[in-house]
Structure formats: C-alpha cells, structure tokens
C-alpha cells in the first residue's frame, strides 16, 4: 500500500477464517462423497418404499444430513469467492451475493426438512 492511499476494501480478519472453513469442509467431503456416490448408485431405480427405508435408517439419515450441511457450507464459501472475483463491485455484486445466499440457505433448509421428515417417519 503506497503512502497516503486508502486501505483496500474487504475485511482482513475474515479472510483466514473463510480459507480455513473452505479447506476443512473440503476434507470432510472426501469420505462423505465416497459414502454418497455408491449409496445413490445403489438406490438407482429403487421403489419409494426402498428409498425411504434406506434414508430412514439413523446412520444414513445422519450421514445425509452431514453431507448436506457440509456441502452447503462449502458451496456458500465457494460461490462467494467466485462472485467476489467475477461480479464487479456495486449493486449487481450485492444483488448476486444476496440471491446466492438465499438460494443456498433455502436449499439447505428444504433438504434438512425432507431428511427429517423421512427419518422421523412423518
């Protein structure tokens, strides 16, 4: 930073936290994805009863909820970085950021609701 210039925009203390959570969620997603893909392949073409019985099992419901929570956190941070880089500062930047956060949070809530409904047999 040259003398007399304004400090760059953005929060210095928040950057490291963003970086760490992005990596920690990435590490957690390795085993969760290795569980998820074969599970989905196994369920391909199965009946409603078979899918609900599988997802209603406590271990599967917990792993699915974990996968959803970690994925949506990782997605939130990743899309934040992409919007920071490609959507220039201003109204469009703020609008895109808010729309993304509403979409990701809405998807997360809807998916938790669906898993809970199946897991608790509602």
């Amino acid at each position: 930073m040259s003398p007399g210039s304004a400090p760059p925009p953005g929060s210095a203390p928040q950057g490291a936290g963003h970086w760490w959570v992005q990596r920690l969620t990435a590490i957690a997603l390795v085993p969760l994805t290795i569980w998820f893909v074969p599970s989905m392949a196994m369920l391909a073409g199965k009946s409603h009863g078979a899918v609900v019985a599988w997802l209603g099992a406590p271990l599967n419901a917990m792993l699915m909820a974990s996968l959803l929570a970690v994925t949506f956190t990782h997605l939130w941070l990743g899309l934040e970085s992409i919007i920071e880089d490609y959507v220039h500062a201003g109204r469009r930047h703020i609008g895109t950021m808010i729309a993304m956060k509403i979409a990701v949070a809405g998807m997360a809530l809807a998916s938790f609701f669906a898993v809970a409904k199946i897991a608790f047999g509602g």
């Binding site: 409603h48 899918v51 609900v52 997802l55 699915m64 994925t71 949506f72 997605l75 899309l79 990701v104 998807m107 809807a110 998916s111 609701f113 669906a114 898993v115 409904k117 199946i118 509602g122």
Partner: peptide, 15 residues
C-alpha cells in the same frame, strides 16, 4: 450447485 438442487428436489419428492 445445480446438482445439489436436483438432490434437494429428489429428497423433497421422497418425503
């Protein structure tokens, strides 16, 4: 992100 929208839809449909 789009793929997750599919997963959410599939879960809601199952529920």
């Amino acid at each position: 992100f789009a793929g997750m929208a599919l997963l959410v839809t599939w879960l809601l449909a199952a529920g």
